[in-house]
Amino acid sequence: MTVFVRKNADKPPMLVYENVKKCYGTFMAVNGVSLHVNAGEVVCLIGPSGSGKSTLLRCTNALETIDGGEIRFEGKPLPTKDAEIRQIRQRMGMVFQSFELFPHKTALENVSIGLTTVKKMATEKARTRAIALLTKVGLADKTANYPANLSGGQQQRVAIARALAMEPHVMLFDEPTSALDPETVGEVLNVMRNLAQEGMTMIVVTHEMSFARRVANWVVVFERGQLLEQGPPQQIFEAPTIERTRDFLGHLGWSG
């Protein structure tokens, strides 16, 4: 049996989660999760709804504060001071399930707003950069559109460009295709696949099993706030070692 070696395993990991806990009242949303993400890896978090994978993702850029354990990003624990958290967030791009584009800004302005307000970049320079990014996600002709005049898939691609504009070291995707019409899911997944091929480090919470299987380097299965199993996609999808993983994949109609 060959031993699977993770990408960039010889270098220090980009993100380390150590016994992370997060509770809402008495409900343990994340209950002692430990894992790590190496530079250049695409890690997919899968599992039933409410299993804690989205919560863990939102803890990563401190949209939620953790109640126990530690998250280390590029060697340092997540800071607690507001100004320092903002610095960290600039190095992590996030894409939301419901896009969260700003409705009063055009596609172009949505992509450049972070550059101009947070990075204080000159408007012209930010504009050029935004156009380049919108071109990259295939929306060069939609720069002047407001979100209301874009399809769901187009909105989500703008949201990806908005996150990329900050030149993040890692991209966090929170169920990026769950709110989309089936016919536009593909265009978003394509953009994500291209991004992965360029070597972007990505953490993706998803229910798209074929994406996880084809694009991920590492798959993590969650259940009830805990980590059920993790491994390379071949192992998770073809030879899950744990019965519960098999059950979960079976429920989704996944047949090996």
């Binding site: 610095q87 967030r89 992590m92 996030m94 939301f96 969260e100 972070g114 307000t117 947070v118 996150a163």
Partner: peptide, 12 residues
């Protein structure tokens, strides 16, 4: 979500 999208790109 709108606030969080702002936070996620590092806005104050």
């Amino acid at each position: 979500g709108q606030v969080q999208a702002g936070l996620a790109i590092g806005m104050s």
